[in-house]
Amino acid sequence: MNWLSDFVRPKIKKIATKDIADNLWTKCPQCGKMLFNKELEKNDFICSGCDHHLRLPLDRRFSMLFDNGEYKLITLPKLQEDPLNFKDSKKYTDRLRSYRKNTGNDDAIKVAQGEIGGITCIIAALDFGFMGGSMGTVVGEGIVKAGDIAVRGGYPLITIAASGGARMQEGILSLMQMARTTAAVNMVKEKGLPFISIMTDPTTGGVSASFAMLGDVNIAEKGCVIGFAGARVIEQTIREKLPEGFQKAEYLKEHGMVDIVTRRPEMRKTLIRVISILTHRQPQIKQLAIESK
């Protein structure tokens, strides 16, 4: 399978992202508690004070979900960069370059293949750290590629959203990715293969209004923000305070938009259960996801 690139073994020590490694402490954005980074990392980036789920590096996300923390990253084809020749206060190409340098990733998506409970699955995950996880043509390409491999191999597809929405710097082409990614997941669904959408903080705008909302089963990570319009835009439109818990995972579940809200440490177990039931298989849980020690 020529789209498979290097075999990745999780290197736990290198998992911490740069910006966190630079400092010893992180302040919980919800309760304000100062969290010792090593502790935070060990605790799956969950605040020990208020159980707030902080954002998780992609590699860590993958190693938490796949059996033995083992997976293969899939190489995405190169696309023409900056098709609009976009420039605001900064050139889009310069922005891309600096995000690539800081994240070590080409764009806001990674696609991986591995086993979950002994069942081979494809995961396409968005990286909020790369331009807010915004969806442009490369993210679209990743979802299409993931869908394509799922269909060819007969594998379940899992997407993990973490995105502010469409990538404005790609103009209309970013809007087109809503239809494109929808076509990709629809391809998987029409084959009778499970498509599981995991929503993490945040899942908004063009990503929530396309593939992320279309899972056979929608699973949201506890406390994450999910919505179409931004809270500020809504506040400006209606000129009133937003209700308590508005656009949080639990609010979405209450309103019938997601099936399951789960804490991060239980995500793997939830996935195994759902996927094995939908594929009529007994999960072979060889070993739980790698312990984060």
């Binding site: 319009a229 835009v233 439109t237």
Partner: peptide, 17 residues
Amino acid sequence: AFPGVEAEARGQAEAIA
């Protein structure tokens, strides 16, 4: 699409998707 509390509550994102 309309941005509003009610529209969000009834799943504007899901409806568009």
